[in-house]
Nucleic acid binder design. Structure first.
Length: 641
RNA sequence: GCUGAAAUAGCUCAGUCGGUAGAGCACUUCACUCGUAAUGAAGGGGUCGUCGGUUCAAAUCCGAUUUUCAGCUCCA
């Protein structure tokens, strides 16, 4: 047989060999490091026997597949430790994840304090150095086997496999688990691991099912890598927008309104500055702006379909015996504005923006700082257009979103979400709409993943996802194509033929929700907002109260030039004032004393570069204004504390 | 909503066996008038999330409830 390796080289063998044996043939070093293989594109255990011609890759801990193997084995060790300590535990599933592994368990009460004990038991198991061994059974025998071990979840998993499936198991010592593999050679190879947390998780991911106990852990090839990972997590926590939002006085949450953020003065500056920028680019791109009421009557929401499809999330109230709902979306109001006067095909595309405050009753457990709230401002816009304008309009929006995200230096990924189970409209409309979005993405050459069944109830969507500080992704921008609302509201335009036609509608947001976007911004910049966005751009720090007069003069000139500035008038030493201003992440400190007053100068200390020395005040104003106008991002050259 | 955990001064947190509350920072006042990450001293500030129970006595034990956190589910 002929084996083709990763690098294209070929090896010939006259008998069947395992992946490990081939690794040994290549080099003893590789054999020592080998954790998993990939035969003809399928990830396999290193003990897998190869009998015919095949392409082969061998993975070590340096490959993602190798790391996953270690973590998967770690999850089995976790399961064994749990079974030793809690023999009544029933095992569900235990896969590896992007940054660790978990095991779902039923029938036990395990809390955070128990993790240390379980971890100790795991250490013992790794010391025992039990080899992982694979064996298989036909389906019926496998079911009987798992029934004999009293593992009902495993029985259910096997029952879902096809009749003729050969079921594989892995054992390590006395412990056996249903598993497709691959695994490392023996428990000793799982060296650096840590149990992270315990949480609930639904069996098979459905809230209709029982909630199991999930133990999360992580594992790495080396202890130093584990340490580094834990350190990174600690660092990431410092960037959490909830922590920084509190420290910088951006926003706050109150018991009186769970999920309804209060914006504090500094947060409001940030929000308004983002909005100013938003208006600037939307005016440039030919949008007009409207505002529609926050509350509209039931008839409207019945027409739009929200009353039937979004009832759980709407806040409703009665006024003069009539049902009203606080808007969870801006679109119906937007359509009413469209309909408020006759429209001609010459008016299209009509791009109508609205900074709409929407309220949605999100489940209590879903709330998360500014990322997931119950009321938020969408930087919405509805574009009404002709069929032949669809692709250009979508491309225009994609470009706009990319422009904004790129300016902040965000990495994002794109998803195309298709028809969900609960939806309205015909199959054909969904087909056309989905293809419209798909072709725009394809034409622009954008990478995207398809998210089946994740569309809005009225149409498919393109979603733009941004990452927070610990790698969780949040949907921000979205473009949704909608054939339904124009029909339901009988929106029309007069065509060139003098007849009435139905326009097509796009819903789109760039920031998504301004609240969420501020959360992402805060974590991305760790509170060190670019100068144009910083709530306080300059802090004037007089050396002592003798220079308060000059400090006030500097402040007045800065304000005159539209720069957001403050003076620290406290009777404190300069080092103390600098420390405070730094903690507030203020981009520029201007230190003023006798020398500066004499020369009409300021000593500049920047967040990005530290002490920059003395400068003429006018020169400083010119350069900071330049930085603000160009929305520049100055990278920090100073070591972080 | 579900599972688990937490809630003590404006903030970060300590408070052991149930005996009536403590630190640092912040704030106020006074002194210092200062040159690039914390000057010193004094002072004010708490129904220990809320409601109920056990007890001679509850921040502490028990129950309910609210909010927050982690994860699941759901979403911008």
């Amino acid at each position: 047989m002929q084996i083709t390796l990763k690098d294209g080289s070929k090896k010939e063998y006259d008998h069947a060999m395992t992946v490990l044996e081939i690794a040994e043939d290549i080099s003893s070093g590789l054999a020592r490091m080998a954790l998993a293989g990939e035969v003809n594109g399928e990830v396999v255990d290193i003990r897998t026997l190869i009998e015919t011609d095949a392409s082969l890759s061998i993975f070590t801990a340096n490959d993602p597949q190798g790391l996953r193997t270690i973590r998967h084995s770690a999850s089995h060790i976790l399961a064994e430790a749990v079974k030793r300590l809690y023999p009544e535990a029933k095992l569900a599933i235990g896969p590896s994840t992007d940054d660790g592994f978990y095991y779902d368990i039923d029938g036990v009460k395990i809390s955070d304090e128990d993790l240390a004990t379980i971890e100790q038991e795991m250490k013992k198991i790794t010391k025992e150095n039990a080899p992982f061994e694979k064996f298989t059974k036909p389906r019926e025998e496998a079911i009987a086997y798992m029934e004999s071990l009293e593992e009902p979840y495993k029985v259910e998993l096997i029952r879902d496999l096809p009749e003729d499936a050969v079921i594989s198991f892995y054992s390590q010592g006395e412990f056996v688990d249903l598993c497709a593999g691959p695994h490392v050679r023996s428990t000793k190879e799982v060296k650096a691991f840590k149990l992270m947390s315990v949480a609930g998780a639904y069996w098979r991911g459905s809230e209709k099912n029982k909630m199991l106990t999930r133990i999360y852990g992580t594992a790495f090839p080396k202890a130093s890598e584990l340490e580094e990972y834990l350190h990174r997590l600690e660092e990431a926590k410092k960037r959490d927008h909830r922590k920084i939002g509190k420290e910088l006085g951006l926003f706050t949450m109150m018991d009186e309104g769970p999920g309804f953020p209060f914006f504090l003065p500094k947060g409001m500056v940030l929000k308004n500055t983002l909005i100013d920028y938003w208006r600037e680019i939307h005016t440039r791109d030919g949008y007009v702006e409207i505002a529609t009421p926050i509350m509209l009557n039931r008839t409207l929401w019945e027409t739009s379909g929200h009353w039937d499809h979004y009832a759980e999330n709407m806040y409703t109230t009665k006024v003069d015996e009539e049902d009203f709902a606080i808007k969870p979306m801006n679109c119906p109001g937007g359509v009413l504005v469209y309909k408020s006067e006759p429209r001609s095909y010459r008016d299209l595309p009509l791009r109508m923006g609205e900074l709409g405050l929407v309220h949605r009753h999100e489940k209590s457990g879903a709330l998360h700082g500014l990322m997931r709230v119950r009321c938020f401002t969408q930087d919405d816009a509805h574009i009404f257009m002709l069929k032949e304008q669809i692709t250009d309009e979508i491309k225009g929006v994609v470009r706009l979103i990319d422009e904004v995200y790129s300016m902040f230096g965000f990495k994002y990924h794109v998803e195309l979400s298709t028809k969900p189970e609960d939806s309205m409209g015909s199959e054909e409309d969904w087909e056309v709409a989905t293809e419209g979005l798909r072709s725009a993405l394809d034409q622009m050459g954008l990478d995207y993943v398809v998210n089946e069944g994740d569309g809005a109830f009225y149409g498919p969507k393109i979603d733009f996802h941004l990452e927070d500080t610990i790698g969780r992704t949040w949907q921000c921008g979205t473009i949704q194509l909608d054939f339904q609302l124009p029909q339901r509201f009988e929106a029309e335009y007069i065509g060139a033929d003098g007849e009435k036609h139905r326009p097509i509608m796009i819903h789109r947001v760039v920031f998504g929700s301004i609240e969420r976007f501020i959360g992402i911004l805060t974590e991305h910049f760790a509170g060190k907002f670019p100068t144009w966005l910083a709530p306080v751009q300059v802090k004037v720090l007089p050396i002592s109260d003798k220079y308060f007069g000059y400090a006030e003069k500097v402040l007045a000139e800065l304000k005159e030039q539209g720069i957001r500035a403050e003076v620290d008038r406290r009777a404190e030493k300069i080092g103390y004032k600098i420390r405070e201003a730094r903690l507030q992440r203020i981009p520029y400190m201007l230190i003023v004393g006798a020398k500066e007053e004499e020369e009409n100068a300021v000593s500049v200390r920047s967040r990005a570069a530290g002490d920059e020395g003395s400068q003429n005040l006018n020169d400083f104003i010119t350069s900071i204004k330049e930085e603000i106008v160009t929305k520049a991002i100055r990278a920090s050259v100073i070591e972080e504390e």
